[in-house]
Design a protein around this nucleic acid. Structure first.
Lengths: 121, 121
DNA sequence: CCGTATCCGCGATGATACTG
DNA sequence: CAGTATCATCGCGGATACGG
């Protein structure tokens, strides 16, 4: 896809195609934009976290959904998973380079929204 | 929120808070990351579109979900809606400035993923 | 052309309990 | 601590029909 950052008509036309095909990108996007994916990726920006830290960061997420989201994102290559074989085991998650590339625009997105809405009560 | 684009520990800590509160940002993010929101926003980048054009661009979307997605995004101030009172009426949709701000990182996100996956069969 | 209204299945989601 | 297993539910999203 054209390397530039300018949005041209041609770029947009090209993008359309992706909506029809069974392009793998669609699956990845679906994972990222799944109910919890975006929050996981944002949480991991700037710092790696343990499972329980993620669960406590993202209020409202269940262990099941967290595990499920993590598995999908690890599978997609956005997140790495490191197991320290102690007892009890310690599992740490962090962003891969791909994950950082993807997380960056997500952080932008999020910051622009909060800024525009004048959040932070 | 801190104006810089560097991801610092402090920035990340601040973001955590948003996951707990009933910050309006969360609703907007949920709309954007809803099943069809992202595709609508990406479709409208660079060109305004009519209802049927959107439906045809985004293969697989039903009229119901398209209308619903559009309503939510108009409500959120990301999209404008213009009605030309002809018969039959012509309705056009496009991105507001806010929508463009939000759409830009989404386009980035999308391009990075397709690029990484070497898509486009 | 641009929707809204209605019905309904099914999968995502959550609560709970249990294991290594 | 870091999950899996199981089950109940609930609302998203699709199909269809109809209205302005």
């Amino acid at each position: 896809m054209a390397g530039g950052s300018q949005i041209t008509q041609a770029d947009t036309e090209t993008r359309y195609e992706v909506f029809h095909t069974d392009c793998p990108a669609r699956d990845v996007v679906d994972h990222i934009t799944s109910r919890w994916g975006i929050w996981v990726l944002i949480s991991l920006q700037g710092n790696d976290l343990r499972f329980y830290e993620l669960r406590e960061s993202i209020r409202g997420i269940s262990e099941k959904m967290l595990a499920q989201s993590l598995r999908a994102l690890v599978q997609d290559g956005l997140i790495w998973r490191h197991v320290e074989p102690t007892t009890p085991p310690q599992v740490t998650y962090g962003l891969t380079e791909f994950g950082r590339e993807v997380g960056e625009p997500l952080g932008e997105l999020f910051d622009r929204i909060t800024q525009r809405l004048g959040s932070r009560p």
